[in-house]
Design a protein around this nucleic acid. Structure first.
Lengths: 329, 329
DNA sequence: TATAATTCATGATACGTTTCATGAATTTTC
DNA sequence: GAAAATTCATGAAACGTATCATGAATTATA
């Protein structure tokens, strides 16, 4: 019924070239074939404009050469950057990417995971915020930033080291007292170690510090009142601020400036992620840069390695500090 | 050989339920089946944890329920936003998205287009910068912002209207003279009408204007010297600037400010696209906002409408001005 | 030269699904 | 109550590919 375009098949090529079907298959897959046969087949392929049929191949082999990448969205530039590098890493290995937006919604995640069982993808890379997600045992599965169990490889930045580095930088810049700030729910699991590293370093350095947590989904205006509550006579209570994500840092800086607190003159701010506006050289805020490309590479090579049993269950990759105009240079 | 996970098949379900294979198929596809049969089959499906196999279905029907979206990258937030909305629109229709990054590279585009012929996708939505791209006739194909021929539907913003609106806004803000600025190669085809609309309105309004084109791939430093060449005694030559894309506007504003030209006090700047940082309410610059969601909807519904012959060859969607702090409010 | 070993094209089969023709069982019509 | 019409499960076939067992033709070995 919907047979409108009758694309040529291997059988057509075989007929045209006067050879057996299997011979065509071996030519297409680059296996050993006698010279004169190969030429005849290649000619027929060119002549008919033959292209292999993906579903036929997949049905036979069970491989799709496609990996699903589950991510909340692509609005956050850090996620967008991840998507970019995951795709590049997959491409390098002749794989395609099926992009799945969870929108932080568990049902969507579950739905997408079903696809793997429908043999639409060979494996899944996921960045999820749901700690109770049921991860299928029979599908190659890799997570970013979330440790579920030793049987599910997790790729993450060195979050602890990042927090530690941020504290040291703020100390170096001469901050007398500092604070760590985050949206509570956004930094769970591995990323929560950003705080641990920060605290650990502050203690070690003897630098007074405070921990501030914003409630999840706190509207813009409440962050402002929160910040105002730390004002004393027009001056901000802290000389240094380490903020869990660049996105929050961006908002906080805008609010501080609207309150006539100068950044970085009055408060020095360091974010986390390494977001750049249009791929520019300079991050939008001074920040701890996650090694996105390396994370992507690790995800892809891990999810594609069939023998997942031999793979580490947690891979931590080193971070770096980068100046973005919100700290002293 | 790679038969590790033996997922249950329809045949297994049929055996378990004691019915014929075809009956299972009709249950799975929600077709009419006798009540007692349906119950038996559904029980068997639950018991075995059956999931339909995608490649088998595709091989038989010829449909993948997947659309390829070809886009330069996801680093530019406008592209990221497009990806987001295209996905939502596809999802609404039970389709998946195969994301393809061209990186502005024609060879990559061609490679991706091959996929459609390999029956991996049912259609293609593309935002390409290659005017000579060969578009396959036998695959549903829709472009964004690029008009190729009447047989290839093109979805675009009302670029002319956007340019016109920008000029009127700058006039309204009291600019005595204005300029349009763009990177030459980035605004070809439909988007080049941004200039046309702007020019047309300037003439109509009797507002002095100038057109400035940057060479493609012009490094940061050259934009700066370019801007400096329009300085007279520390003052910028224009009171209003309409810039072809938000990304360029962002760069230009940063450069102007570094040259002690105040924005918007000395120069009022309007960009084009409507990029917001983290999905924030306010754009990063005052701008002509493209109706991304509507564009995405139009793309998807067009590419999925099988009878492409009845579809308009050019769809223009209305734009809006939005304040982003780089013009007077 | 005769036998063994190797190379390599052939033909058949299976992957999991949808759909078509068939015919049995049921319901409707006169 | 018999014939016609309808409902609906069945079994077979086909979609396009990769691979296995087979056997013919070639080359190497003794």
């Amino acid at each position: 019924m919907q047979k409108e375009k009758n694309a040529p098949t291997m059988a057509d090529v075989a007929r045209e070239a006067g050879v057996a079907l299997g011979t065509v298959s071996r030519v297409v897959n680059g296996q050993q074939v006698g010279e004169e046969f190969r030429i005849k087949v290649e000619e027929a392929i060119r002549k008919l404009g033959y292209q292999y049929n993906s579903s036929g191949r997949t049905l036979r082999t069970g491989n799709t050469n496609t990996i699903a990448f589950i991510i909340p969205n692509t609005i956050n530039p850090y996620f967008a950057l991840l998507v970019h590098h995951i795709n590049r890493a997959l491409e390098k290995r002749n794989c395609k990417m099926l992009l799945c937006f969870s929108e932080y919604d568990t049902n969507r995640e579950i739905e997408y995971i079903q696809m793997a069982r429908q043999n639409q993808v060979d494996g899944i890379i996921a960045l999820t915020y749901n700690p109770n997600l049921t991860i299928p045992a029979d599908v190659p599965f890799v997570t970013i930033d979330r440790f579920f169990s030793t049987s599910v490889p997790c790729i993450a930045s060195d979050n602890f080291g990042g927090g530690w580095l941020a504290a040291h930088k703020l100390k170096e810049f001469g901050c007398a007292n500092v604070a760590f700030m985050r949206v509570a729910s956004s930094l769970t699991n591995e990323p929560s170690k950003r705080k641990d590293g920060f605290v650990s370093a502050c203690v070690e350095l003897g630098m007074p510090f405070e921990i501030m947590a914003l409630e999840d989904g706190q509207p813009f205006s409440e962050i402002e009142t929160f910040l105002r509550s730390h004002l004393k006579e027009g001056k901000f209570a802290f000389e240094g601020l380490f903020i869990g994500t660049d996105s929050l840092a961006w908002e906080v800086i805008r609010l501080l400036r609207s309150m006539n607190i100068r950044v970085p003159e009055d408060v020095q701010v360091i974010g986390f992620d390494g977001i750049r506006m249009f791929g520019d050289q300079e991050p939008i805020v001074s920040t701890i840069v996650q090694p996105v490309q390396e994370i992507a590479e690790a995800c892809v090579s891990t999810v594609l390695s069939k023998h997942l049993s031999n793979v580490p269950s947690l891979i931590c990759l080193p971070v770096q500090y980068a100046y973005g105009g919100t700290t002293k240079e």
